[in-house]
Design a protein around this nucleic acid. Sequence first.
DNA 1: TAGCCGCGGATTGCATCCAATCACAAGGTT
DNA 2: AACCTTGTGATTGGATGCAATCCGCGGCTA
Lengths: 214, 214
Amino acid sequence: MSDLVTSHRIAAQLKKQILKGKYPPGTRIRQEDIADEFKASRSPVREALRILEADGLVTLIANTGAWISELSLSDCEELYQIRERVEPLMLKLSLPNLTDEHISMLITIKKQLEKTNSIEDFLELDREFHLLTYEGASTMLLGPMVERLWNTTQHYRRAYSRMLETEGFKPAHLEHELLLNAITRKDIEDAERILYGHIRRTRLELEKHPEVFI
Amino acid sequence: MSDLVTSHRIAAQLKKQILKGKYPPGTRIRQEDIADEFKASRSPVREALRILEADGLVTLIANTGAWISELSLSDCEELYQIRERVEPLMLKLSLPNLTDEHISMLITIKKQLEKTNSIEDFLELDREFHLLTYEGASTMLLGPMVERLWNTTQHYRRAYSRMLETEGFKPAHLEHELLLNAITRKDIEDAERILYGHIRRTRLELEKHPEVFI
DNA sequence: TAGCCGCGGATTGCATCCAATCACAAGGTT
DNA sequence: AACCTTGTGATTGGATGCAATCCGCGGCTA
């Protein structure tokens, strides 16, 4: 429906490319380049850039241009602290509405997550896993907000994951196990606490690797 | 600097008008009307609308138009629950950096707040008060997010305030007193808890007035 | 009478052209 | 030699015209 609209199509495509890491943080985006790539004029590109700005993926500066958003270490810490508080809320709202299908899908993803050796796959699957736990919350407000938090930290999760040895992923896997267990039991309090700890631990790990940041 | 840019100017003006209640939720916005009002063409208006969409003030539907955002009761509950978790975090990050000047300004605003009988003034002052307590958090990320939360709920705070008798504001004043006290003592834990309760109580009050919503 | 189809007016979306602004480099001044 | 100034090229911002889309109304049919 609204994907027929050129600006939305461009925004969606660009977003995919950015999340996949095609443009690293700090890269300048020229409107005309994008326009050429999508065989469109600059008008829809400008609208697409505004959409991506709202998603936190690019930063616009008037009369100057657009850049792929860049985070400092303290920005990233802040985002993680927001996640620590917001995502447990979303999980709490979602949990009562998660069906057995959701749970069996979570089990599948978790198995793949433990098997893979590829960073790219890990990022993708981890994102899928967590966002799926939030699927029960039928929300037009929290959902986009949480997605935005994931989007803006994506590059730094990638950079950080690269620095980890296989052993480094162990805690995440254990936490996923615990989380899935709490979800299956529909234990909201426990699930919230585990998720909080999961995000918090990741933040503290990230703080040990300041070399990832500008 | 960037207020010379037409689209930003239009966005800022429109935002003020919307927050003041010039356009109630659900009002349709025609691009050309706005363009005429600001003696500009539709291009900057379209960009302004995208900016306001990111602020949560208007809702855009492709090929159809723009409307002043409208919240259901459950949307509003959700936003308040987000506020309950996020704003205490922001206060925590801000508190250590609040100066004596901040605090004396807070005292002034609080006095005005207790004196006024005008709903419009109350809304304005209450917003000023709380946002001022967050001023110590030098953040490019949390700040806009919190402002957005306030923006989107503004209409409903107004509608709800109208239904209150003078007595109804009493709890808010007491909570402000407590909050200010905790801030003066630089007691982060206490301040967080009071703020959480303040927002939570407001949410529960709001839920008692579903007639405010669509 | 209720429901469906299609047409016309109104409104948004996109392309193109022109104006405004900025970054950068070369030259001059102290 | 460092700093300020100025001019030029590249890039973004805004105006206009046209195409695409949607909404509502009237007429047709069952």
